[in-house]
Design a protein around this nucleic acid. Structure first.
Length: 337
DNA sequence: AAGCAGGGCAACCGCGAGAAT
DNA sequence: TATTCTCGCGGTTGCCCTGCT
């Protein structure tokens, strides 16, 4: 006798009580190695013989072998050949990952500091989920660690912080551009400062909440896609955005911290936009007892752009200024404190 | 004490880019 | 110039641990 279990679900999504996830439109069969059509057409060889390599967690013996080999011989610039030379039955990519994320010297695992949190928020707001670039600016952290930390903690922290107190529903209902969507994201989004024409007094709530989270006073950042234009919202006399071409001035700022990509190639003349964030000494103080229930938050509503907006609307510590390069291909930006 | 659900994290995967041939 | 190879990245998966019922 046999039983068949048929599970039906919406074709591209499934949900849990608190969060929804979007599935990638992806062929499950790729989990077992099956060269893609383009691979076969192009003649791409598999990186290793998947039938004869060990997978799963690394044993201490394997770790020792790999570490010992690399410390003595180096990687030789060829990860594919390395496991064979080191006497490991592992895929080269697996060796590389193990070395970079766990075995190499000066790796730090565990608790992230508040300072690191802020840097991650700032960089994510500027460049998005380019974990390797972010990791390059946090000593001893790996991209994988930061990615996991973001996905499991920081993102939730951010979204939880942005959950609406009940009385804000009224504010939204009376705003000039009410969102048609019932989702909380749309409510938040309608308050975000992405469009400088939005009156800043609509922005207070999410930002105040964010600053509470970050232990900071309320700050104001307006964002304008047309960088280089001075944003001059009637209610926002605190924002300065201007093209910055005087590198000397940049370098003479106290505590400047230059961040540059370790990966990208060509150098072009790019305009650096200066975004200066200053405190708003605002009379609005939001109460700690504001409700911050997660129950209605739908995670899939928060795409990268939206989260970047959330961060952009609030991030960084007091008296910070955030420098970033508009040219994302260069990944150059500076933070100075 | 056992079973279950959820969270955290290590590891895997496919893909794009650049180097090598 | 075209093709192949390798690296490195971001997204995703799945195992293990912990806490709750």
């Amino acid at each position: 006798m046999s039983l068949s279990l048929i599970i039906t679900e919406p074709e591209n999504s499934f949900s849990f009580p608190f969060f929804s996830f979007k599935k990638q439109n992806k062929d499950i069969s790729t989990k077992t190695h099956r060269p893609r059509e383009t691979d076969r057409e192009m003649g791409r060889a598999p990186c290793c013989d998947k039938e004869n390599v060990k997978r799963g967690p690394w044993s201490p013996e394997e770790d020792a072998k790999l570490k010992d080999y690399i410390e003595k011989q180096g990687t030789g610039g060829n990860w594919i050949a390395l496991p064979h030379k080191a006497g490991l039955r592992r895929c080269g990519k697996s060796c590389r990952l193990r070395w970079l994320n766990y075995l190499r010297p000066n790796i730090r695992h565990g608790d992230f500091t508040e300072e690191e949190d802020k840097i991650i928020y700032s960089l994510y707001a500027s460049i998005g989920s380019r974990w390797s670039v972010i990791a390059a600016h946090l000593q001893g952290r790996t991209d994988n660690d930061i990615k996991n930390y973001w996905n499991t903690k920081l993102k939730k922290k951010l979204i939880a912080t942005m959950a609406p107190p009940s009385h804000h529903h009224l504010a939204i209902a009376t705003s000039s551009s009410p969102s048609p969507s019932p989702s909380h994201y749309n409510m938040i989004n309608s308050l975000l400062p992405y469009n400088p024409s939005v009156s800043t007094n609509q922005l207070l709530t999410p930002q105040g909440m964010m600053m509470t989270m970050m232990g900071q006073q309320q700050q104001q950042l307006l964002y304008q896609e047309d960088m280089g234009t001075l944003v001059n919202s009637p209610n926002s006399n605190k924002l300065i955005m201007s093209h910055q071409e005087d590198s000397q001035e940049q370098s003479t700022n106290n505590g400047i911290m230059l961040l540059s990509d370790v990966r990208s190639g060509s150098s072009t003349t790019s305009t650096v936009t200066r975004v200066k964030m200053e405190h708003l000494d605002h009379q609005h103080h939001h109460h700690e007892e504001d409700e911050r229930s997660m129950s209605s938050v739908v995670m899939e509503d928060y795409g990268m752009e939206e989260i970047k907006q959330l961060i952009s609307s609030s991030c960084t510590s007091s008296n910070n200024s955030l420098w970033f390069d508009e040219n994302k291909t260069e990944d150059k930006f500076m933070l100075y404190y």
